[in-house]
Simulated scan of single mutants.
Amino acid sequence: MQTELGYRSISYFFVMDGEGFEAPAILLAQSLRNALGDDPKLIAYVPEDKIETIQRVTRRMLTVLNVEICALNTENVQWDPAYPHGNKILASCARRSTDLSVFLDTDIVCLSNMKFDSVTSNTSVFAVPEGVPTWGRKDETWHPVYEMFDLDIPEERVKLVKGRQRIVLPYFNAGFVGFREHGNENGQRFPDLWLETAKAIDANPKIEGKRPWLDQIALPVAAARMGGKIEVLENTYNFSPYRLKGDEDISDVKLMHYRMGAHFRKYEACRRVTEIALEQCPDRLRARLRNKLELFLRGVDLPAHLAN
């Protein structure tokens, strides 16, 4: 199998699942444009039943930032019980014209340029290990999952990025998931196998405690089914500030997975993203945007021209 470096173009995409996701989506898109410029394609997938409810200021900001809004059919997969996390898998399955696609949770902000030079035509997926073993703490827990698909237990291990940094079977945080759009030499695309794998695991009563980690359980298994190599990226591509003070050197961080507005507000680089978004916003809508970003602006002193 050829292993030449595998991309010329790239899409970054996220799921905007209702009004509560609009503010972080704006900041994510703004931060991507700040760090990466105009070239990458940015796509916001919105469930079909919510696309008409997108607020005016959000639509305008996504237009300013050249973000394509695409309707997402969430009715064609019946999770039982409902599984909103699964929307990221459905969005991943949508076809894009670029060589690479990267899914990002909306509670992520991009702080510096990213290059995926380690990704080759033999890469099935690229991701960052999870922080702690939220599922599958023991190898034996994974055995029935791999056995479902007649797969051997992987020889590879990854180091988790938080706490004791345990060495475990491949297990990744699904807030950042990248893959090659054109799939492997057999024409299999990673996201299609990810969905198929997740549905099969979800329907298997022998696999317990799956929620909300079903997407993360299915991810390495789908990659194993696809063949090729999982490219394990550094923590700087999915950095968590949880339990950190806010005065850390984050100059090497590419993507910060802040999760909470309070974590976001600790860092000057993050606060600057909100200022730039307000500067980009048309004057007549700036007050609405300030209101929408209230969680991220709480206690932050804005320049006078943005505060009024």
Rank of each mutant, 00 (worst) to 15 (best):
A29R: 04
D249Q: 03
G37L: 04
V300L: 14
T53D: 15
V128L: 04
K138T: 13
I43T: 15
G20F: 15
E185M: 04
D215C: 03
I10Y: 04
E279D: 10
S121P: 00
S251P: 05
D283H: 10
G261W: 12
A307C: 03
M16P: 14
R189M: 04
Y237T: 01
D49M: 04
K115G: 04
Y237W: 11
P129T: 05
G131Y: 06
F103L: 09
S121C: 03
D202T: 00
V57I: 12
G261R: 08
N204L: 01
V128Q: 02
A200Y: 00
S118N: 05
H263I: 08
K115R: 11
Y45D: 12
K115C: 07
V125W: 06
L100S: 02
D49K: 04
M61G: 10
L62D: 09
V64A: 15
I10F: 07
G261E: 13
R189E: 08
Q216P: 03
Q30P: 10
R33Y: 14
L293I: 11
P220H: 01
D252H: 07
E147Q: 11
V158F: 08
L42R: 13
P47M: 15
T3R: 01
F264L: 08
E52R: 06
I217F: 03
V102S: 03
L62M: 15
Y12K: 07
L255V: 08
D247Q: 07
T63R: 13
R189C: 06
L5M: 02
T120S: 06
I153E: 09
A198C: 02
W213T: 09
F149P: 04
P212I: 07
T3D: 05
K254M: 11
Q216R: 00
Y7G: 00
L289Y: 12
P81M: 12
K199A: 02
V77W: 06
C270H: 11
S251E: 09
C281N: 12
A200P: 00
V132D: 13
G246P: 12
V119S: 07
G163W: 01
L255E: 03
G131D: 08
H257V: 02
D150A: 08
R157V: 03
M256K: 07
P154T: 05
I250Y: 11
I89F: 07
R56Q: 11
G228R: 03
P144A: 01
I43E: 11
I51R: 01
K162P: 00
F190T: 02
N66T: 11
D105W: 10
W213C: 02
R137W: 12
A262N: 12
D80Y: 08
N186P: 00
S121E: 06
S118A: 06
A200V: 00
R96I: 07
A82P: 15
F149N: 03
D49Q: 09
Q78T: 13
